[in-house]
Design a binder for these strands. Structure first.
Lengths: 129, 129
DNA sequence: TTGACATACAACCGAATGGTTGTATGTTGT
DNA sequence: ACAACATACAACCATTCGGTTGTATGTCAA
């Protein structure tokens, strides 16, 4: 994979995690995942200005977690479940790395059955006291 | 559940998502999930000061995504896979809301069989191979 | 056409973030 | 005891963030 593509992927990840790192936005996302809501319908339930909520919606939209559809003078927002899944899969990947650590330890033990100690992988030189 | 408990939960979610919303921290988390690393070992691989990396590690630690263990003069950091899983489960919950939306639409149709619409696809016909 | 509504966006402000350098404290090896 | 190392933390700075108010544009209804 090309480096710029990796950067893009990381940019997307930044945007999505950042968008999720605010409870108002998580709440909005919950609501638009259960069904379409206009921006003002969403804004009605929060103790802040319409503009503030509109900006939150824009953040979610830029992160790809939500899209909008025009309906008359309203913009109906709905959650993008595929984007949510893609975030979830990043975390699954992290879990996979952890699982791989176990496998690596097993491998080490298998390769050198004489060494009975130290589950720590060897980035650091180990001293024998 | 008590309101303060909900707030605490949301505070934790804020901290975890925010901690994940930085590519350097995600990279550090990947590394400490595959095995223990001292803070300076981690810092060696990034083009920023040691103090900056140390702060990133502190952010991950405050979010509960990483814990440290003293070993001599070093602090060995390792990833907390349970915390990663808890974030993943929040996203799974969001997905569940979306799935519930379909059920709700079905229910409406059942109540009013005259309504001919619903372009919404069923849960997901095809998964990536 | 006009007025009310829905949305978008700019300008501004205080607080938080991500980086820097510098300093303090504990640990180790000689 | 001491020099070098590993870590922590404070102070500072530029930028971003989350909120505000105000203004502009588009759409509907009468």
């Amino acid at each position: 994979m090309k480096d710029e593509a990796i950067d893009e992927q990381e940019d997307r990840a930044d945007a999505m995690f950042r968008a999720l790192a605010d409870r108002t936005r998580r709440d909005i996302l919950r609501r638009v995942l259960t069904g379409e809501h206009s921006v003002s319908a969403l804004a009605a339930d929060y103790d802040m200005s319409f503009a503030a909520v509109q900006k939150h919606v824009a953040v979610l939209e830029r992160a790809g977690l939500l899209t909008k559809r025009r309906h008359g003078r309203e913009q109906l927002a709905h959650g993008e479940v595929e984007a949510v899944r893609s975030v979830a899969s990043m975390l699954t990947e992290l879990e996979g790395l952890w699982r791989g650590r176990i496998a690596r330890i097993d491998e080490l033990i298998a390769l050198d059955p004489l060494d009975p100690i130290d589950p720590t992988p060897p980035p650091h030189p180990k001293e024998k006291p």
